[in-house]
Write a protein that binds this DNA or RNA. Structure first.
Length: 309
DNA sequence: CGGATTTGACCCGCGC
DNA sequence: GCGCGGGTCAAATCCG
């Protein structure tokens, strides 16, 4: 099964997002907002700010196009995948296929946004545990790119985890962290997070089991609907089918960055201000690795749920 | 002060 | 049976 193309899509997204990052000035969204606030109060430099606005506008369009293209790619690949599944259903059923098919399945199951799938062939669980158990345990992997300087083994996937151990393993100099779902013991899901041997920037998260509850962020989002923000520039809903994990994009950060006190509210009446807010959100989303991770999780999760149908 | 994290000790399975 | 290595426990510590 060829899953490389969809992986490439993910890579494209990351690469593009990163290249976009390079193009943007080294300003945090918050500081941009301050600049924007100054624009409204101080009339000087209007021309420069308008230019900046136009630039951000163009960037926003780029992002929108990227996301649209990615969604299209995803749809195309999904249909391809469905085709392949229907053509070769026996591959899945055959236990003799072992690693080849297993690693392919892993790819489908993965939240992988990085796309180096070779590690699934060295999956220790695959080697040691009986297959039935693997199927029961629903082992999946996620690849999350982080800052090289970021030493915390934290993969933000919407769920709340409690770390219960850390160990340095033989095959990898970087420590492996062990997490349990904070809803344990009612939720038996565990995850292991370790930096990739090949690329220290990449965190490999191995999930065991399935959550029997919604992620805290989802519950928060649904209970507090007043916090919802309309994101016209992000044509991507990251919610999944009930069979899969529900990934919720946590947009509260973007919201909070725009929520600069009571004075900010009237500004929303201006189309410019709205446009700016949208751009802020898009920009902060692409800068946020959580977003790419959540997006990849949503996409791969959907693929998986489609596969299992 | 309570919950989360850290970290050394312990357990257990596997290979020799 | 023994040693090794991965996984888990739980007391100590940290932190909000």
């Amino acid at each position: 099964m060829d899953t490389s193309s969809w992986v490439d899509t993910s890579l494209d997204l990351n690469a593009s997002a990163r290249s976009l990052k390079l193009e943007t000035p080294k300003k945090e969204p918050n500081s941009n907002l301050i600049v924007f606030g100054r624009k409204l109060s101080v009339k000087e430099d209007t021309g420069a700010l308008v230019q900046e606005l136009n630039r951000l506008n163009a960037e926003n369009k780029k992002l929108t196009e990227m996301l649209t293209a990615m969604c299209e790619n995803y749809n195309a690949l999904q249909s391809q995948l469905r085709d392949l599944m229907s053509k070769n259903p026996e591959k899945e059923l055959s236990p003799s296929k072992k690693r080849k098919s297993e690693s392919s399945n892993n790819n489908v199951n993965n939240f992988g946004i990085i796309g180096n799938s070779e590690s699934s062939s060295t999956d220790e669980e695959s080697c040691k545990k009986p297959r039935e158990e693997i199927i029961k345990a629903k082992i999946s992997r996620a690849y999350v790119r982080t800052e090289a300087s970021d030493t915390s083994l934290v993969v933000k996937d919407g769920y709340q985890w409690r770390k219960y151990g850390q160990k340095v393993t033989r095959d990898n100099p970087s420590p492996r962290a062990y997490f349990k779902c904070s809803f344990a013991p009612s939720c038996p899901v565990k995850k292991k997070v370790q930096r990739s041997v090949d690329d220290q920037c990449v965190l490999v998260a191995t999930y065991e089991g399935e959550h029997n509850h919604l992620p805290p962020s989802h519950m928060e989002a649904t209970s507090g609907s007043s916090r919802c923000v309309t994101l016209s520039s992000v044509p991507c809903s990251a919610s999944l089918k009930s069979s899969g994990p529900t990934i919720t994009l946590d947009l509260t950060k973007s919201k909070s960055s725009t929520d600069e006190g009571p004075n900010s509210k009237p500004k929303l009446d201006s189309p410019e201000a709205r446009q700016y807010l949208v751009e802020q959100m898009a920009s902060s989303l692409t800068k946020d690795p959580n977003f790419t991770a959540a997006l990849a999780a949503a996409i791969s999760g959907r693929m998986f749920s489609t596969k299992s149908n």
